[in-house]
């Protein structure tokens, strides 16, 4: 029973929502809107769960003085203080919370993102080797596209940007559409498996 009831809910609601896609009637849409409004109520609870999990993991580390427990302490202090600042003074412009956001959160996020540039270059350095004919095609295409993206490409030859666009729009797009079709089908298959109760790992446990 513990498994049957949730499964029944999934199957019934799942098919109702599949129906919604094909039924534009007011009843169908009103039901959908009403139902969707409930999902908003779930997320706060999930956030509470998340914070609890964070607290438990790092709290345990700190109390047990596990290796690198100092980092956990930093996490916990940051969590408490940011939340405190938000509750205490609000989140408007000019509050400590906003100050933290602008001066801590923003620059740190930007830093992580900018790491991409370095990682891309080292990944490119490793990956683009003319090991085989296919890899050579990849190498040449890669260089053309890279040149095509910057003004110097057009300075070398006006065909470079055009070829780059062609590579992006024709072979690249064709491959992408192929993958997208597969992904679409895969998604349908997984959804169908869930709807029919074939796949129930998400309920906890296997078959």
């Amino acid at each position: 029973m513990k498994r049957q009831i949730p499964l029944m809910i999934v199957i019934i609601l799942g098919f109702l929502f599949v129906g919604h896609t094909f039924i534009p009637h007011k009843y169908s849409i009103d039901f959908y809107d009403w139902f969707i409004s409930w999902t908003k109520a779930i997320s706060p609870f999930a956030v509470a769960l998340g914070v609890m999990s964070l607290w438990m993991v790092h709290g345990t580390k700190v109390t047990r003085k596990a290796p690198n427990w100092q980092y956990s302490l930093v996490t916990l202090v940051a969590l408490v203080f940011t939340a405190f600042a938000g509750f205490m003074w609000g989140t408007n412009e000019g509050t400590p919370f906003m100050w933290l956001f602008k001066n801590v959160q923003l620059p740190m996020s930007a830093t992580m993102f900018s790491l991409l540039a370095f990682y891309i270059s080292s990944a490119a350095y490793k990956a683009f080797r003319a090991r085989s004919p296919e890899a050579t095609v990849l190498l040449v295409a890669g260089i053309i596209v890279m040149l095509g993206q910057v003004p110097i490409g057009a300075m070398i030859s006006k065909w470079i940007p055009e070829t780059a666009t062609w590579i992006l729009n024709v072979p690249n797009l064709a491959a992408k559409r192929g993958i997208m079709t597969g992904v679409g089908l895969g998604m349908t298959a997984v959804s169908l498996k869930i709807l029919l109760g074939i796949e129930r790992t998400y309920l906890g446990g296997g078959d």
Partner: peptide
């Protein structure tokens, strides 16, 4: 239970 844990919803803080 603590081996499955929440980090953060902020994308880059998560990856950090």
């Amino acid at each position: 239970k603590n081996s499955v844990f929440f980090i953060t919803t902020s994308q880059f803080a998560y990856v950090a």
